[in-house]
Design a binder for these strands. Sequence first.
DNA 1: AGCATAATGACACCGAGTGTCAAATGAGAA
DNA 2: TTCTCATTTGACACTCGGTGTCATTATGCT
Lengths: 213, 213
Amino acid sequence: MAAKQSERERSAPKRRGRRPSTSPLQLEQVAFALFESKGFDATTVDDIAAAAGIGRRTFFRYFDSKNDIVWGNFTEHLGYMREWFAARPPDQPLMDAVRTVVVDFNRLDPDQVPWHRRRMELILRVPALQAHSTLRYAAWRQVVAEFVARRLGVSVDDLVPQALAYTVLGAALAAYEHWLANPQEELTSIIDRTMRDLANGFKSSHRYDSQRL
Amino acid sequence: MAAKQSERERSAPKRRGRRPSTSPLQLEQVAFALFESKGFDATTVDDIAAAAGIGRRTFFRYFDSKNDIVWGNFTEHLGYMREWFAARPPDQPLMDAVRTVVVDFNRLDPDQVPWHRRRMELILRVPALQAHSTLRYAAWRQVVAEFVARRLGVSVDDLVPQALAYTVLGAALAAYEHWLANPQEELTSIIDRTMRDLANGFKSSHRYDSQRL
DNA sequence: AGCATAATGACACCGAGTGTCAAATGAGAA
DNA sequence: TTCTCATTTGACACTCGGTGTCATTATGCT
């Protein structure tokens, strides 16, 4: 669906037929308002379509599923992450490179923070979205695994790149949950700390506390 | 649903009313046969119920959802894992203890291997099940996090136990995928190797190859 | 004006999951 | 045996997410 979004945006210049009556972004905003007031599960697609003034069938032309609403243009962002990996200096140690990119990938403009927090609260706390997110995470992991495989000169499907990608994702998710529970801490700091723990094999983890960094 | 199963089994001795006309295990077997022949998505709950000779509504009294079929008595097994963690010698290093238990948790009787492989192929390859499985993994992670938190003397909700649990899960999943792709290798070996990589911070991972162990 | 293109919404359909309730079944008590 | 009570079952109706189809509407180009 983030794919749909970007296709739509890129093919802007010279239109031909009828103009879209809304946009993924606008639908996202309408939907988020409903999620906030009624909760995700209690909000039906009919509710969202009605609130946005479109038909139910039309909604599903903007998003493949109700779950996909919360993911914004994630797929597009993944492209940036891939580029950042490609731009890492070849002499930078593997885990340092991974940590740097993952931290940067999650750096936010201060004005985006509240919206991102609401997004992540949905993704990480609503069971239906927790489940669905797995499919998005797979694409994220793949980007990491591709970088690691390139660095190690092995196939993306080999155990090490996949295991590394899986564990890096895990570290990031734990960091995100900690961020949701501790709004005063900076997201990038938490991720950085967690990624260092991971690169350490959690050997000195008992010495960390929430004040560090 | 695995909860349902065990309640059902435990409350066996003195019955009163009408006897159940089937069992979760029998339904699982009927369902797996259908999944094998038609695929998971193409198999409807009606199909399963019909094949098992029960009504559709009755099916949902044995399993909370179609997805839950593939998880067998996972919740029950989790109990064992919790016990194994509790039985670890207090002087065993943290990551060694975790590795040992996770490896043991996935040790199989040779005759169970084919069935377990089919189960895991469904869980790890069918998108609907990949997604749903996240909810089961959360319970698994919690068991790991509880052990780690106890060892470190911190809260289960703290960053380190959660991050460790998340990454251990990730390592296990990568190992499982490798196992599915390489049936000749032993599952426990793969998991052991991956867990050692994790405890190493993947520092020497480029020296591993699929022959090791 | 007329044509091609693209988006829309109405309609009908499927499948998962749930609430309700009467009927079937089995064990123990009278 | 018959009555009673607990428990499971299945029929029915309903909600909701998601999809296929198709006529309609809006827009740009010739």
